[in-house]
Design a protein around this nucleic acid. Structure first.
Length: 106
DNA sequence: CCCATGACTAATT
DNA sequence: AAATTAGCCATGG
């Protein structure tokens, strides 16, 4: 396995600060330069070998939906709630505000 | 190389 | 605002 793509994805996800969120699309944009690889990003974190070490629960959809989670959406919601992220049903409240934009400037 | 799959998105209905 | 549709991309068989 190459795993290079997934490796890059995990690297970025690991930098998401607690209480903040990141979308699959933004990660894809940082990696491939386009939001179109968002789906591939999802596939990458889906195979996340290090739950907790890599806070993949802080990655959500671009439309504010919490998206999915290997261990179940409920688990994801609970983890986020514990970090101070308010969730209503499947949607994130104050989405735009809770979102973490890469600081990495380049 | 071709085909199916999915933790996605944007546009349309 | 919720449901559908079509498009895109990295994997794995």
């Amino acid at each position: 396995m190459d795993g290079n793509f997934q490796e890059e994805v995990l690297k970025l996800v690991k930098q998401i600060p607690k209480g903040k969120l990141m979308t699959y699309g933004e990660i894809a944009k940082e990696l491939t330069g386009s939001v179109r690889a968002a789906r591939a990003v999802g596939q990458a974190v889906a195979a996340n070998p290090y739950p907790i070490v890599v806070p993949c629960h802080r990655v959500v959809r671009s439309d504010g939906d919490i998206g999915g989670y290997s261990s179940g959406v409920e688990k994801k919601i609970r983890l986020l709630s514990a970090e101070g992220v308010e969730i209503k049903g499947r949607k994130v409240l104050n989405f735009e505000q809770t979102l973490f934009l890469f600081d990495f400037k380049k």
